[in-house]
Design a protein around this nucleic acid. Structure first.
Length: 856
RNA sequence: GCGGGAGUGGCGGAACUGGCAGACGCACCAGACUUAGGAUCUGGCUCCGAAAGGAAUGGGGGUUCGAGUCCCCCCUCUCGCACCA
């Protein structure tokens, strides 16, 4: 075991004696035997939870992108350990979900059989990559001991009124007769058969994440996350401040009374008033209300039936039917505006004039109130629509400026005299340098002033109130699929919706051979009568289980809470473990999860906090998004044939070289370009490290110049690693290597030893081996992190750039702390500089230790 | 269309709060050691120029003693989101 050098001393291909295959095998075995990588969860001092996003165990094996992510996390974790923390670096497998299911269908093997196989392969690959994983706490979301608690979380939400059922659209392929996930719909067509996808309505479970929108948004101000990720979440939540404005439908009785407008004869007067005569719209531009020349309702809007005129009824029905058939995914911006007139009019509460009410599919029922006031003069979509249907366009906001009064767009335009003015060619969107016109007593106000003043004015007559809206929708967690945790709900004819009692959890997913979705449009579980037929837990009568499974994102919304408690059976998580290990100190993952996964994890954590299960409400104290690896300038894909298989590279170069190269090829948070040839440079560096350590002289003293460089390097690496600037940290170590080891000199032991420690987070196996050879008696990861001596790290002489009129003309070397006059003297003593200085400099700029600029 | 990020040698990429542009590495060139070199070591390597020197960080303006870095306009690439009123 210890005679490693002897294994290949005379190998011509390995003149340095460094054989990564041997070294890596040795240390992986030893780490396992000595449990070096397992954290002492109960008693470890200064706990540090270094979390990486767990992978989906695909049949293809570990992707280099996974390894890039994990290695970056591993380096950070190992660095924290060298700083004296007890580091917990767990891993698990996100093994439920449609990916696994589709792949299983494709190859005709049951996922329950496939997944363990894939996981075994992942485990093998992760181990040989040298990750400091705490294997005893591995988990899989498909394990009943895990998804029991996923179901428990569903019930916690249900108990708190945060899970509810409603009919909602799903993507439906009429040829395959199956429900499709959004990702399976490509440009409105089924990914498999190419048929045009339609929408169908099914009863589905939703989580009220919108109740948490404001908190999810507000906490972004204080959590330490990558800015790009926070921005993505802010945009996804999409808060808009605006107002709800009430428009009254006109001449209802003249149009034929309640019978004509389709009201139920049982409707009370109050219902009639509230229901049939008021249309509420949401707008962020209440300042433009004088320019609202028509209203638009979404095709699905419930008030349409109540207001539609007899003449328009047929056309309106046809339009609504067509809209209902559209698939969910494709609502293209470039599409031409369509819509139909309802025959009804409403009163603009600002102008008192009648305006027509239309329906159009460019207004979405899911957002705001499903109705808008259209202001074609100041909104592009309304403008396009108005142009298409010849509706009036009025300017009510115009640019500020002396000529504003004469500006054609500021002229009063209304239905009477609009022909006398040049037609308006485009909507005027700018709100910053603009003020109100054609708006009665509000003329001259800025847009902001106008918003407040007009809402206040309308509010006096109860026509408006300030309102906040979010783009965020409630989270649909139902999946009409097989490979997921069954939703723990029972339907009883007598008792209605009954949650499965906690003692009956988990609701096991039955092992059925026939799990293919079929033409019933409901979950495969709905065909397993022996499974879904149950007795009601409340009344004991006949009942049936919910046959949908839950979304994979629910599995991954809480796995980090489970890791420290994987050995606990009776609870989802152990209080002592929570106190000690959570919230997560550092989470690293891809920005492709910037919104869904990271938002859901935050939401579930907040709910569990509110339910009293967790003391914290934000799960990840610090989150950093890593970049993406491309290869030869292009995204990796099977079709391009440029996918990197980590096994091949580890076989050829060793895991240490591969890890270090991945970290060296670009800034970690940006990713980079994988080039086959470039890994050689990193391997050469490790070869030289090997020789330097094995050959190191022990006699004499280390060289002072080299020591200075060493201490500068320790400072640089210590600065860079916690900021994830791995590429420059590696460059600094290479630079040190170049200074330490040249043809002329053999490095001293004291010059090499600290470098071994600096390298260890990146290349752990070779570091362990060399640490041992240099006399270390424990793992290098127990050795602490080298500290630097600031006085050693400082240069004796400063090199100062000398410029004349801003142009570099030379450099001078002066003692640290040299004053301006002395520096000027030194500069003028240099002939190469002096020749550019004809007389006495007019002005001197001196930045001590850096630069001298003589202005002549 | 909206939002984010980025444009620097042959290539991947460095450059702290404005202060020597091109660190480090790949590739390439020359040399040394070698039976050999796809090993190792030494040196060179932005462009123009023999040199002195000049030009150069996507393009164009500006601020400054000094700009890759700050401000304005434009171009290109890239990743999200998709009619969110």
């Amino acid at each position: 075991m210890t005679e490693v050098t002897q294994t290949s001393p005379d190998s011509a291909s390995e003149p340095t004696g460094y054989d990564p295959a041997v070294v890596e095998k040795k240390w992986q075995t030893r780490w396992d035997e000595r449990r070096t990588n397992d954290a002492d969860l109960r008693d470890g001092a200064r706990p540090f939870y270094a979390l990486m996003m767990f992978p989906y165990p695909s049949a293809e094996g570990l992707h280099v992108g996974n390894l890039f992510a994990f290695t970056g996390n591993d380096i950070y974790g190992r660095f924290q350990r060298l700083q004296g923390h007890t580091v917990f670096e767990p891993i698990g497998f996100d093994a439920f979900g449609i990916h696994s299911e589709n792949y299983a269908l494709k190859v005709g093997v049951h996922p329950a059989e496939l997944i363990p196989r894939n996981i075994a392969n992942f485990r093998r690959q992760l181990k040989r990559a040298g990750l400091m994983v705490d294997w005893p706490h591995e988990l899989s979301t498909t394990d009943p001991a895990y998804y029991k608690w996923t179901q428990w979380i569903f019930l916690e939400l249900y108990k708190r009124g945060l899970a509810y059922r409603r009919r909602a659209a799903v993507n439906w392929c009429p040829t395959d007769k199956t429900v499709l996930a959004n990702e399976q719909v490509i440009a409105g067509e089924c990914e498999r058969c190419g048929a045009k996808v339609e929408q169908r309505f099914l009863e589905q479970w939703f989580f009220r994440i919108t109740d948490y929108a404001e908190r999810l948004l507000a906490n972004l101000d204080w959590i330490d996350w990558s800015e790009t990720t926070k921005t993505a979440q802010r945009n996804w939540i999409g808060r808009s401040d605006g107002a709800e404005i009430v428009f009254r439908v006109m001449d209802l009785l003249e149009m034929g009374g309640a019978a004509t407008v389709g009201l139920n004869v049982m409707a009370t007067t109050a219902e009639l008033n509230a229901f049939a005569t008021d249309i509420r719209v949401f707008t962020t531009r209440p300042d433009t209300i004088f320019g609202a020349t028509y209203l638009v309702l979404a095709p699905e809007h419930p008030l349409v039936d109540n207001i539609v005129g007899d003449e328009q009824r047929e056309e309106v029905s046809a339009y609504r039917a067509a809209a209902a058939k559209q698939d969910l995914v494709t609502r293209k911006v470039s599409r031409e505006k369509t819509g139909v007139f309802t025959g009804a009019y409403a009163t603009n509460p600002a102008t008192g004039r009648p305006i027509p009410i239309w329906i159009a599919d460019y207004v979405l029922m899911e957002y705001g109130t499903g109705a808008i006031m259209a202001v074609p003069g100041h909104d592009e979509r309304d403008f396009e629509f108005a142009k298409a249907f010849g509706l009036p366009i009025v300017r009510v906001v115009a640019p500020r400026g002396p000529r504003a009064a004469h500006h054609p767009s500021a002229a009063h335009v209304d239905s009477q005299n609009r022909d006398e003015h040049p037609p308006i060619e485009e909507p005027y969107i700018d709100t910053e340098h603009a003020f109100l016109v054609n708006s009665g007593q509000f003329n001259g106000l800025t847009v902001d002033e106008g918003k407040h003043a007009i809402v206040a004015w309308l509010a006096e007559r109860e026509h408006a109130k300030p309102v906040v809206n979010y783009r965020l929708h409630d989270w649909c967690v139902s999946r009409q699929r097989y490979w997921g945790p069954p939703i723990p709900i029972i339907y009883c004819d007598a008792c209605g919706v009954v949650p499965v009692p906690e003692k009956d959890l988990p609701v096991l997913l039955p092992n059925v051979d026939d799990f293919k979705p079929d033409d019933t449009g409901i979950s495969p579980l709905a065909r397993v009568e022996s499974w879904y037929k149950v007795k009601c837990p409340k009344c004991g009568g006949d009942a049936r289980r919910e046959t949908d499974v839950s979304d994979t994102f629910l599995d991954s919304a809480w796995y980090f809470l489970r890791y420290p408690s994987t050995d606990v059976e009776r609870k989802p998580f152990d209080q002592e473990m929570l106190d000690k290990w959570l919230p997560v100190n550092s989470y690293i993952g891809g920005n492709e999860h910037a919104v869904l996964h990271l938002l859901y994890a935050r939401f579930v954590t907040m709910v569990l906090h509110d339910a009293g299960h967790l003391e914290f409400e934000e799960p990840f104290t610090k989150f950093r998004a890593h970049g993406m690896i491309i290869r030869d300038g292009a995204k990796m894909s099977k079709s391009r044939g440029n996918v990197v298989n980590p096994d091949e590279y580890i076989d050829r170069w060793g895991a240490d070289s591969f890890r270090t190269y991945l970290m060296f090829l670009g800034p970690y948070e940006e990713g980079g370009d994988f080039r086959d040839q470039s890994i050689a440079g990193v391997r050469r560096f490790l070869d030289r490290l090997w020789v330097s350590a094995v050959d190191a002289r022990r006699d004499g003293a280390p060289d002072l110049t080299v020591l200075r460089k060493l201490h500068q390097t320790i400072r640089k690496v210590s600065d860079d690693v916690p900021r994830l600037q791995y590429n420059t940290a590696i460059a600094a170590m290479m630079e040190y290597m170049n200074a330490m080891r040249t043809k002329e000199r053999r490095p001293h032991v004291e010059e090499v030893r600290p470098l071994v420690q600096l390298v260890s987070p990146f290349a752990p196996h070779i570091a362990e081996e060399l640490w041992e050879r240099l006399g270390g008696t424990t793992s290098v990861f127990e050795s602490g992190w080298p500290t630097f001596d600031p006085s050693l790290a400082a240069e004796e002489l400063a090199t100062i750039a000398v410029q004349v009129n801003g142009k570099l003309r030379g450099t001078i070397r002066v003692a640290q702390g040299t004053g301006q006059d002395a520096a000027v003297g030194a500069a003028l003593a240099d002939a190469g500089i002096a020749k550019f200085v004809p007389g006495v400099p007019k002005k001197v700029i001196y930045v001590p230790g850096r630069l001298l600029n003589l202005v002549v």
